[in-house]
Write a protein that binds this DNA or RNA. Structure first.
Lengths: 171, 171
DNA sequence: CCGAAAATGAGACTCGATATCAATTTCATA
DNA sequence: TATGAAATTGATATCGAGTCTCATTTTCGG
């Protein structure tokens, strides 16, 4: 009945880049966000930057609550609503994608400059495994074209047990 | 700000079967459900049967609220909780599948005896287009095997605009 | 028919997400 | 740099899908 697990969020570079390299990457993404905001007549505020940085430096998919908790420590005035609003903005400009989680709490990941991939979600340990399958994509695109559909985004999640969680039986 | 659209649910056979044919189909599915219940020491009650019949005869994916509204008319004592509970039972025995909808309200479809398929969801008119792509499935399965993952179910939804809703611009 | 177990439905409750709104911040412009 | 309209924020209220509780009713084997 705990409100949420994973109260502690350890932040470290996702791609283990060189510091300088990472800085440049970070700057590029910030700029993308900035441009999107300007296009809408909005500003890149301290809070928005913090939230984006948090998502950029996390080594895993985070929920809004996790982002909020992590940032609250270094900025106690931050409000939940701002995190929700900012994540929505980041989704709109395609920097962040929702990865529907198991129990109604959505998790988010940074999409920027990362190749397209889908997810396998372990129902035991909640681990999210990213995978790519260009061939699968290809046939998916073909199906979309066949229907005369214009795809804006998609969600492809496979639920089951990961390699480490294949216990013989549920106790 | 309406609580929910589509208050009216028109029920008619999904597959336009012959009456006798449909009756037999219905009986088979009811029996499947029955068997699942007995296996768990549960009973097939009037409410449970009504709910399954409703899902079986709908021509589209329904939300719990829609099932509830439709049945409430012919059985005013029916409770929301019962619909939620029954849909969960139907999911457990594989007769019904959740099709994650746009706004947090899940919709459900009857899976029984229908071939596997995925969905394209129109963000304009909420229409759900079912499609099949055996090749796509094949490469998906391959990816799952490659990860040593054991898949239990999956969700593959493509969001965008359907053929009829490709307006030139959002006003 | 009896009685234990299952099922129901009304309503309280949970909790992620959104809306509201007064106070604060931002930035183009003077 | 000062100004003010527009954007932003955060506290809080609110919403709503889904779950839980529990007293009452139904089911079904014996």
């Amino acid at each position: 009945m705990a409100t949420h697990q994973n109260a502690e969020v350890i932040l470290f570079p996702k791609h283990a880049r060189q510091p300088t390299q990472h800085k440049r990457w970070l700057a590029t993404i910030l700029q993308t966000f900035q441009e999107h905001l300007v296009r809408q007549g909005l500003n890149l505020t301290r809070q928005r930057e913090e939230i984006l940085r948090c998502l950029m430096s996390a080594d895993r998919h985070l929920s809004v609550e996790e982002v909020y908790d992590a940032l609250k420590k270094q900025d106690p005035t931050l409000g939940r609503a701002t995190v929700f609003r900012t994540v929505k903005l980041l989704q709109e400009c395609g920097l962040v994608a929702e990865v529907g989680a198991l129990n109604g709490r959505s998790k988010f990941e940074l999409k920027a400059d990362r190749p397209h991939h889908d997810h396998m979600v372990c129902i035991e340990c909640s681990r999210i495994i990213e995978f790519q399958s260009p061939m699968m994509e290809r046939f998916q695109d073909e199906a979309i074209r066949r229907q005369g559909f214009v795809a804006l985004w998609h969600r492809h999640e496979i639920f089951g047990r990961c390699k480490n969680c294949q216990r013989p039986r549920r106790s």
